[in-house]
C-alpha cells in the first residue's frame, strides 16, 4: 500500500463522520427516550380522528388560518358532523393548554419549530 498514512487518516475521518449519530447518541444516552404528549382534557374526541390529527394537524391549522384570515369563515364542520370555531386559541388551546407537555413533546423530538407562536401567545401553564 502506498501513502498509507494519508489514506488511513482519510478513511478514519470518513468513518467518524458517517458514524456521527452512533457516538452522539452514546454520549447523550437518550436514544431510548420517546415523546409522551400529555392530554389533560376531559373531551373524548378532537375535531378530527386521532390518526388524522397526528399526521396532518398542521395542514388543518393552516387551512383554518387561511379560512379565517383571508375568507372570514369561522365555522368548521368536522367529519363527525359537529361544528367547531376555527380558532387556535379558542378551540385547540382550550383542551391542549399545556404546550410544553403536549406540543413540544413531539415537535422537539423530530426537531420541528412551528411558527404558531410568532403571532399567538403561549398559554400560561400551571406547573
Amino acid at each position: 500500500m502506498y501513502d498509507t498514512g494519508k489514506i488511513i487518516t482519510g478513511l478514519i475521518v470518513f468513518l467518524c463522520l458517517i458514524t456521527f449519530p452512533l457516538w452522539y447518541d452514546a454520549f447523550t444516552g437518550k436514544a431510548a427516550t420517546k415523546p409522551e404528549p400529555k392530554i389533560i382534557t376531559k373531551e373524548k374526541q378532537c375535531v378530527e380522528a386521532t390518526p388524522y390529527m397526528r399526521d396532518s394537524h398542521m395542514k388543518l391549522l393552516i387551512q383554518w388560518r387561511d379560512r379565517v384570515v383571508r375568507e372570514k369563515m369561522y365555522s368548521y364542520k368536522g367529519s363527525d358532523g359537529k361544528n367547531y370555531t376555527m380558532s387556535l386559541t379558542k378551540t385547540c388551546l382550550n383542551c391542549h393548554s399545556n404546550k410544553q407537555q403536549f406540543c413540544d413533546q413531539c415537535h422537539n423530538y423530530v426537531g420541528v419549530t412551528p411558527t404558531c407562536w410568532n403571532c399567538h401567545i403561549i398559554p400560561e401553564e400551571k406547573s
Partner: peptide
C-alpha cells in the same frame, strides 16, 4: 436527516433545517 438519528437534535442540525425551509412555502 440527522434529526431522525440524534436525540436531542443538535442545534446545528435544527439551524440547517430552518435555513432550508426559509421561505415557509406551504405546511409542512
Amino acid at each position: 436527516h440527522l434529526r431522525f438519528f440524534t436525540e436531542p437534535v443538535p442545534f446545528a442540525i435544527q439551524f440547517i433545517d430552518k435555513l432550508d425551509n426559509l421561505f415557509e412555502i406551504g405546511v409542512p
